[in-house]
Amino acid sequence: MSTHDKNTELERSDVPAAFEDPGLPEHRYRMGDTDPAANKRSERQVVVLFAISVLGAVGALVAYFALPLGSDPMSVRWATLGLGLGLALSLLGIGTGAVHWAKTLMSDHEVTEKRKPISSDQATRDAAVQALVDGARDSAIARRGVLKGAVLSALAIFPLTIAVPLIGSVGGDWNISKFRHTVWRKGRRLAIDPSGRPIKASDVTVGSVFHVIPDGMRDEEHWMEEKAKAVVLLVRLDERDLKGDQSPSGETWSYDGIVAYSKICTHVGCPVALYEQQTHHLLCPCHQSTFDIADGAKVVFGPANRPLPQLPITVDAEGYLVAQDDFAEPIGPSFWERLK
């Protein structure tokens, strides 16, 4: 449809309300469509690409046999690289070959296909409705109310026979009161994580930080779960820097400037372990909650709401640091019944 036609039309019926679709743009021929040499060249290129693929696959197989995994880490690197590059080459050869073939040698005349409306025509719809109506009438479901109720009840209740045993067991013993306790007990020694050496108060010099587990951790039945709750960070502060801790009046939870706080963040439970000895701030590398160790582990920044619970500590007769008791509150993230 040329512009000329449209202009004459314009004049005849005054100005049309809308523009008219000019139709598909004119087809542009490729070099290969007109020049047999170019066509032949494209064919050769496709052949070369598929040949590269074969070479790549052969290369990968050669690499598999020629590059064994040894006791040197570099052998793993070379084997991975050799096999991977061969694989990549064999795949990319096929891929680019096929696409190049489609682009240069297959017809590039655009085809127009008509769309049909998605919805069915009215006759089909009517027939469908009639089929359902007939079926419903046949079953007489509308008139037999009790039957309907019985069918629905049976279908609704039978899944419980699977769901109840599943739910009963999927949460283990469902004893969520375990959140409230750790294995820390009066007199239990503090030990270094992971070596398990007990710690003497005199070992903890000002400015140092100890990552602590309960002594004899590995003898616990569920030591992994217990460790997940019991890990503690031990820091000695210069007495002059220590603004306060969480000891209730009449008790002393720290020993000679040594304080022990739960390492499990009160936000979502990452191990908070990033201690800056100059500022006495403890930063959680997961979400950047910052606690002030010199001031009862109060939150100074970030998404946590509560201070880290303090482990009351003292020393035993041999000078080793021991717990006075379990934590006074559940450690770690908040949950609904935490304060109950």
Binding site: I192, D203, G207, S208, E276, Q277, Q278
Partner: peptide, 18 residues
């Protein structure tokens, strides 16, 4: 020695071998 922000890891905490 625990320079700047870094805490000290004395020989009781991390032995020389460690």
């Amino acid at each position: 020695t625990g320079p700047q922000s870094m805490p000290v890891f004395n020989d009781a905490n991390l032995t020389p071998e460690e």
